[in-house]
Computed example of a mutant assay.
Amino acid sequence: MGKRERLGRPLLDCVSVRFEDARPVRPFRWPPGGRYFPGWYWAATTRQHVGFESWLERDRLVLMDFDPAVVGVASQPFWLHWHDGTRERRHAPDFFLRRADGSAMVVDVRADDCIAPRDAEAFEVTRRACAEAGWGFERVGTPETVLLANVRWLSRYRHPRCRQHPVAARLMEISSQPGPLMAGADSVGDRLATLPVLFHLLWQQELSAEGMAVELLGPRTVVRLAGGGAGWRRRGGGFRRLPGSWSSPRRLLTRPVGGRGTSWRYCMVCRRMLPKGRCRGRSSTPGCTRWPNASGPRRPS
C-alpha cells in the first residue's frame, strides 16, 4: 500500500471537512523505554478505534466517549502549519470532536504542570485558528479522579452484548423509583447476570447514579431512571478490573462461596458471569477456540 496523499490547504477551505472521520496524520509509536504509553481505544460512539499517545489522553478519550453530546471523535486529524517569525512550525491537535448539534471542538490534552513555552505557543495558535474556523478549542488536563474511576469502570460494559433486553427492561422499570444499586440488581435476578446490564445502562446514561463525581460506585449508590433517557447510542466492549477500596465497583463481582470469596468476571466471548480462570472462552485465555486470535488474544481496552 502506497503512502497516503497529503494535501496542504488554507484553513478556511477545510471548515466543511469531516475531520471526525479522518485517519491520524502521524503513526503511533511504541519505542523501547518510552516515557508514554500509546495505544488504541475502541470508542462506543463511533464503533472505531481511536489512538492515544498517553494514559492521560486515554482517560480523556474515555470521558469523551461517555459524553452524550459527542457523536464523532478522531485523534490527530490534521497538521496546523504556521510561521513563528523565525521558522516554520506545525502542530497536530490531539482530538477533533463533532457534537450532536453539528458544532466542532478541537482538544489538546496536556497536564497543567507539563506545558512548556513551546507547547503554550502551539496551543494559543491552535486556539486562534479554531476561532477563525468557527470551531471550539479546549486544552484539558488531568480529570477528576473519582469521576474518571467510575466512568472507566462503566466503560468495561459499553459493548451492546452487555445489554440483555428482558433484564434491561426490568431494570428500567425498577429504577423508575430511586433505590440502591445492589438492591435493584438483586430484585431483578441473579446479580451476576443483572449487574453487567445495569452497568451498561449507566454507561448509556439511560440510568443515572447519584454522586458519580464524589464517590465510587458501590452497593448503596442510588440509581434512578435518567431524565428523558439517553437512547440507544453507545457501542463497544471491554472489561478490566479497577483497583480500589472496599467500596470499589470490583467488590460488586465478588460472591461468597463456601465461606470464601470467589472472584467472578464477565466473559465478553461467552457473555456470562463465570469464576475467574474457569472460562475457556475468556478473551484473556490463550488458545481459546472461541476467540478469533487464538494464538495471542488481545485484551479489550
Rank of each mutant, 00 (worst) to 15 (best):
D108W: 01
A74T: 07
G281N: 04
C162R: 15
W246H: 03
A129P: 04
W291C: 15
L201S: 05
A168N: 07
E57N: 01
P24D: 11
V197F: 00
G238N: 03
L192E: 10
T86I: 07
P31M: 07
R241S: 08
R35N: 08
P166G: 10
D67S: 12
L242R: 05
G227V: 08
W55H: 12
A116L: 13
L252D: 01
L147G: 11
F28S: 15
R161L: 10
P166I: 09
G238Y: 08
S284C: 04
S283H: 15
H159Q: 02
R47T: 06
G218I: 00
E173A: 13
V107M: 05
S54C: 04
R139W: 06
L253G: 03
R156N: 13
G33D: 10
P180H: 03
G218Y: 03
A43D: 13
R127M: 06
R235M: 06
W264C: 06
R90I: 02
F37C: 03
A133K: 05
F199I: 01
R250A: 08
W246G: 05
Q164I: 09
L12H: 08
R163P: 00
R251M: 14
E53W: 00
R191I: 00
P38E: 14
G34E: 11
S301Q: 13
A149M: 03
K3F: 10
A131I: 08
L56D: 08
W264F: 15
D59H: 07
R35H: 12
A129F: 09
W291H: 14
L201T: 08
M105L: 15
R29P: 00
V197K: 07
P297Q: 11
L252W: 01
D94N: 08
R9I: 14
P166F: 10
H200P: 00
L242M: 10
R118Y: 02
L171H: 00
S75V: 07
R90W: 06
F78S: 12
V15D: 06
G33S: 12
R23H: 08
E57I: 13
P143E: 06
R271H: 12
D190S: 12
P256K: 11
G277T: 06
D186M: 03
G211I: 01
A43M: 06
G33F: 13
A149G: 10
P292V: 08
V197Q: 03
L56G: 03
Q164Y: 11
